[in-house]
């Protein structure tokens, strides 16, 4: 899938031609450098490795410096492999080549955005799994309103099933949001405006796939 790496900038809203206010996310996408091109002969599959966001030379391990020097690129922070970049981009995916947001996407395209969702910490079952809670303060209820209820029953099965939804760490998951519409592209500023929300905090890395 062809794609590009970006950073979430923040959200705003714009009006479309129908007069509807559309919530949009602004993403600073690219320019990315092609740092490796994998093909079926040597690697067994086709893929393109892109790198984004400059990194200080002194903070880069020597092994990575060597890898980036192969493509004559400065060291980068984020490296992502995209499998099966479509053939139409073949002339652009040359080692060391720069890929910009307008190379991949056009206005009114639909794209998928992948990000790491905001961490929520240790959360109970109501927030984490959408349990209903009790919702009653009478009929013998006492401070159990958001408790998960029974988990293992009695003599049968007398154990807790694997995978039972319980309280725990929530968020910081890799989340993909599909079919976001490209509202606008600002090629000179490397910005792309997509409809709807995108997982993650501001300044977190977002992978955009076509």
């Amino acid at each position: 899938m062809p794609g590009i790496i970006g950073k979430k900038v923040g959200m705003t809203s714009i009006f479309n031609a129908d007069g509807k206010s559309i919530a949009c996310t602004l993403i600073e996408a690219g320019p990315c450098v092609v740092t490796q091109v994998k093909n079926t002969e040597t690697d067994g599959y086709r893929a393109v490795q892109l790198a984004y966001d400059d990194r200080k030379e002194k903070n880069t391990p020597k092994a990575l410096k060597g890898h980036f020097s192969k493509s004559n690129s400065t060291p980068k922070k984020k490296v992502v492999e995209f499998r099966d970049f479509r053939a139409e981009f073949d002339h652009k995916v040359v080692l060391g080549n720069e890929i910009r947001v307008e190379d991949i996407f056009a206005e009114n395209d639909f794209l998928d955005a992948i990000g790491i969702s905001k961490g929520k910490g240790f959360q109970g079952v109501v927030k984490r799994h959408g349990f209903g809670g009790v919702g009653q303060s009478t009929h013998g209820q006492h401070n159990r309103g958001r408790a998960p209820g029974s988990v293992g029953a009695s003599s049968f099965p007398s154990r807790v099933f694997k995978g039972l939804r319980m309280a725990g760490r929530m968020g910081s998951d890799r989340v993909k949001v599909v079919n976001l519409k490209v509202m606008k592209i600002y090629p000179d500023k490397n910005l792309i405006l997509v409809s709807g929300s995108v997982p993650g905090a501001k300044n977190s890395y977002i992978i955009l796939e076509k």
Binding site: V9, T12, E28, K189
Partner: peptide
Amino acid sequence: MSEQLINIVEEESSKIAR
């Protein structure tokens, strides 16, 4: 930094209306 980028988009999209 990110505020500035958002301002660019907001200004551009609202210029005609304002």
